[in-house]
Design a protein around this nucleic acid. Sequence first.
DNA 1: TTGAAAGCGCTACCAG
DNA 2: CTGGTAGCGCTTTCAA
Lengths: 331, 331
Amino acid sequence: MATIKDIAKRAGVAPSVVSRALNHKYGVKKSTRKLILKIAEELDYYPNAAARSLVTRKGQTIGIFMADISQPYFSQIIKGMEFAANQMGYTLLFSNSFESLDHREVFKKMVESGRADGLIIVGSNNKDKNFIPFLIKREVPFVLVERNFSDPRVHCIWVDNVEGGYLATKYLIEKGHRRIGHISGNLDYQVSLERLEGYKRALAEYQIPFSEELVAAGKFLVQDGYLAMKELLNYKPQCTAVFVANDSMAYGALQALHESGIKVPDEIAVVGYDDLEFSTLTNPSLTTVRQPRYEMGLKSVETLINILQSKTDGSIMKMCLKPELIRRFSA
Amino acid sequence: MATIKDIAKRAGVAPSVVSRALNHKYGVKKSTRKLILKIAEELDYYPNAAARSLVTRKGQTIGIFMADISQPYFSQIIKGMEFAANQMGYTLLFSNSFESLDHREVFKKMVESGRADGLIIVGSNNKDKNFIPFLIKREVPFVLVERNFSDPRVHCIWVDNVEGGYLATKYLIEKGHRRIGHISGNLDYQVSLERLEGYKRALAEYQIPFSEELVAAGKFLVQDGYLAMKELLNYKPQCTAVFVANDSMAYGALQALHESGIKVPDEIAVVGYDDLEFSTLTNPSLTTVRQPRYEMGLKSVETLINILQSKTDGSIMKMCLKPELIRRFSA
DNA sequence: TTGAAAGCGCTACCAG
DNA sequence: CTGGTAGCGCTTTCAA
């Protein structure tokens, strides 16, 4: 592996000159730079990341903390992140299954080791309540995705969940439904509460009384949606529509309905939330609320890199993206 | 950030002693080690990865090259990899969308920069034919996943696709089907050819003549399965079953069948390949061939780490895993 | 515009 | 068992 010294020797200059030439900095004669570039090419030179990062204390690397890379929900977020990172010459370092690991340990491995220059934290369901304050105190540059953290020093990008719940429910109401059930997510999570609030807001707007028994709680898994739907079917008079807090649970609900021989959307209409790739493939295809996931990923990385490169005026990014209703055939 | 020197100063020893104590090496008095460990704890010391990797020339990091992290197909492979890596104290560095990038450039960024100690390459559809030979010449430790590369120096882990195709087809035959269609993947890919071969082998075993017109080719996408199924429906006499080379295309096929009002499995039985998570949710749920994806990911990382740590006897791993037929309700 | 030298944090070597 | 020192490959500073 060729080093900067090898190039320097061949070119008959000092290593420092080579460094400057390679980093496109001023202070190198045009002809010398040309020579150096040529030799670097010949020697197939590529800079050693560790050496560089040791002195600059930056590795052009962003640590990503998220619950589970493998969930389809995250795929578009990752894609957006990757796009932005590639554009700006950064590398992404994933800490998968972040939920189940000790946050402080992951932090050490990522940040204290010097591997990551900054962090992006996806999701709101952190078990360590003091983790965000901890990050602030440590003065680590970081951006929160899918979470609006109230501290004014924290950069946040999230989607308006209240609006999403509102859109879904309003759509059902305008289709003529009056008895609308809701399958919520885990009520410990902020997002679940917000989508529920949107649901209530729409009902209120149309003077439809909110009824506790029309709300069944799940934990975002397919199976939960299945069980919750069964539960809702027990209440009479039966609802004619249901707004489900995420697509996975909506798949479960669709299964339950199919099993019970209930026709969708004729007898019961279903609206999901997320717009996963599979939602075009269910039977019937799922009407749902799309979150701009790709954009969230993209923006989060862009924002963080701007901070890392001090290209910001110090203002804090609080970015609330808007959800969009996607009409298909389940409602 | 505390360094090894800070600890040394406080403990009244040399930095080298601290290094040895922290790395659990011999040559440190028990009491000294204890003291050092205590101080390290107090100072919240964590080693700098760049500094260490600069001198050891190892970063405990594995580079993963794959087509697209975000495809559900890869999720289980990644999980297996993560598990093994965590166990052994290694970090995974992903190069997503490897297919569309310049392989040599990714290589530089990963290996020549010193970021990754070794590589795992997932998938067989590399556009750069000479990439594997290039890796061999460079003497980079690497493992191939989902590909049996004939060179005896290359470690490979793959699933027996011929067997998989055979299992699927044989199952249909034993259910009484005689006119069985096949929707293949892109015939440029080795896996497609192999699954097709398994299909032919099963037919031959039962003396069912192979018919070219019963094979329609797709490119592994949902839409391809949809179109291929429509195509197969044009041929009379209609087939009574179809073996589809991956689950995504099977979803498309199911859609086409549903649209045409053809009952599955009564009129046409469908078998897929991969056993994606969603395959339990289709209507009817999909009978398919499961690949041990988690295990592949796990084994690939284990193998590579063993190589990196010279824990092998130099023998080359050629590991062929067996697929398994998962019976559900589409066939 | 160039060069010499210091030093980032760590490990490895060798002498004590 | 311990300590001093060199040096990994690079950037940065300061002097020429």
